[in-house]
Design a protein around this nucleic acid. Structure first.
Length: 474
DNA sequence: CGTGCGGATGCTAACATCCGCACGGTGCCTTAGT
């Protein structure tokens, strides 16, 4: 089969990007594949193209509803009609209609939680699933153990679906994440494709401050000096709002974004950022997946992230256009303590585990009564289904240790005093081939490539007039 | 670690002030009964 011809017929591209052809060929050879491709390297084509060749539907397991909707819209825009997302956005009748004709859809998007529902499995059993895709597969490792346990259960469904082949796609994976993906998706002798993950156009900077006040002053001065767009990652929702407030108070086009907002507001901010109407988004780690803004110049971490994996994911949203981008990590004494406390507090407690274990009737009253938190309840139920309460407690303790170790690797980066790029690549078991010209603060950073803010003083003055006028008028 | 909230305090009626303590990120899925 001529893949290039197919690519041109279906998508109008003349040639594949690095890695795409290898991955697609292996999928078409019937192999399980785990592909590590950096963000923006055309991951979705790796299942879209096989979807036109394979004898059956492609089932894509996706972490976010917004991501699904986005991908469905994108496929439809490209002329692909037989696409659907099965999720809680659908009304009962819509859902029924889709199920009636489910075999007609070439691409079916679904969340792990929805996929695990028995009636969903029964419906999917009636059709031929040729390929199951785990999109953003690092979520298995990142979320499965203590947040969204259904992520660990995807493989349970596969036998019922006729044991289709599996393609796992992600941008960031340590050896541990890779192993988790292989194990929990039960990949069968998979082909592993690893693309070098170094992003040469991103320089890594680090600033030490005495306290948060100094950080705030620096952030404001930076945003007033340099042109965005940029993302500022804060540790908490409140902090994200506070930082956005500082920027907007000083006339900068900024907004905050976090998981506590209404879905509509979140979509609105995303769109404004994508249209360039907002220059700075101050957010928690909720912001990022599914954001396609190629020209993000700056990613600033106001507070230290909980792991290098997270840091790299977030930093990777900069400079997708290939132009120079800058990642800046702001540090102050005590920062790591806050994040450590946060990491551990959110895990199920011994008390919660014992409460769920002794509640043999399996009632959800514990959550209603405020004895067990909602997420804890589901996580505990997952583990109790597989081990004793005592083993579950040990399991959660191990998770806490693991999280603290990963957090320590992040502080290690901040304190190493050596090339940050080399440290990061080393963490992912990759070797730095060559230091780019703009590498990191230890190798030296030239700030000249980062465009300065164009002071549109006249424009802002006229805006002032408009504002004053609007205040005078009723 | 930093912050914000609720309750106690101090003393006789409303309110300022202090202290202890909980909380902090990430998202699917909710099919009851007016």
């Amino acid at each position: 089969m001529n893949l290039e011809q197919l690519l041109e017929d279906k998508y109008g591209y003349r040639s594949f990007r690095t890695g795409q052809k290898e991955i697609i060929s292996e999928v078409l050879n019937g192999r399980d594949v785990l592909a590590l491709l950096p963000t923006g390297m055309g991951k979705s084509l790796c299942y879209q193209l096989p979807g036109h060749v394979l004898p059956g539907s492609v089932l894509i397991v996706s972490p976010l509803l917004s991501l699904m909707q986005d991908q469905v819209a994108q496929l439809k825009k490209m002329g692909e009609k037989s696409v659907v997302a099965i999720n809680s956005f659908l009304k009962a009748e819509e859902k029924e209609q889709i199920w009636q004709a489910i075999g007609d859809y070439r691409f079916i998007f679904i969340s792990p939680e929805m996929l695990l529902q028995p009636q969903v499995i029964r419906r999917l059993q009636r059709i031929t699933i040729a390929l199951v895709v785990a999109d953003e597969a690092h979520c298995i490792s990142q979320w499965g153990f203590d947040f969204r346990p259904d992520y660990l259960r995807i493989a349970e469904v596969l036998p019922a679906l006729g044991a289709p082949q599996v393609l796992a796609l992600t941008a960031t994976a340590t050896k541990k994440v890779e192993q988790d993906i292989r194990h929990y998706l039960q990949l069968d002798d998979p082909v592993i494709y690893i693309h070098p993950m170094d992003r040469k156009n991103i320089a890594y900077d680090l600033k030490n401050f005495r306290d948060g006040e100094e950080k705030r002053e620096w952030l404001l001065a930076f945003a007033e000096t340099y042109e965005g767009p940029g993302i500022v990652y804060a540790g908490t929702r409140r902090k994200a709002e506070e930082l956005a407030g500082i920027l907007t108070d000083n006339g900068l086009p900024a907004a905050f974004y976090h998981g506590g907002m209404e879905q509509q507001d979140r979509i609105f901010i995303q769109q404004q950022f994508q249209n360039g109407e907002i220059n700075w988004v101050c957010s928690t780690n909720a912001f990022g997946m599914g954001i396609h803004v190629p020209n993000v110049r700056h990613v600033i971490h106001f507070q230290i992230p909980t792991a290098i994996e997270e840091f790299v994911q977030e930093v990777g949203r900069a400079g997708r256009d290939g132009l120079p981008a800058l990642a800046t990590l702001l540090m102050a004494p005590g920062d790591e303590k806050l994040m450590q406390a946060l990491l551990i507090d959110e895990l199920p407690t011994r008390h919660e585990i014992e409460a769920v274990a002794s509640d043999s009737a399996g009632r959800v009253d514990l959550v209603e009564a405020g004895i067990v938190r909602e997420t804890s309840y589901r996580v505990i139920r997952y583990w109790l289904g597989r081990m004793t309460p005592e083993q579950t407690i040990v399991q959660i303790e191990r998770l806490a240790e693991d999280k603290l170790m990963r957090a320590a690797s992040m502080t290690g980066l901040a304190e190493s005093g050596k090339c940050l790029r080399a440290y990061i690549l080393g963490y992912f078991d990759q070797q730095l081939q060559e230091h780019p010209e703009n590498c990191c603060l230890w190798c030296g950073i030239d700030y000249e490539p980062y465009p300065l803010r164009t002071t549109e003083s006249e424009e802002s003055e006229s805006l002032h007039w408009q504002q004053r006028l609007s205040r005078l008028l009723p």
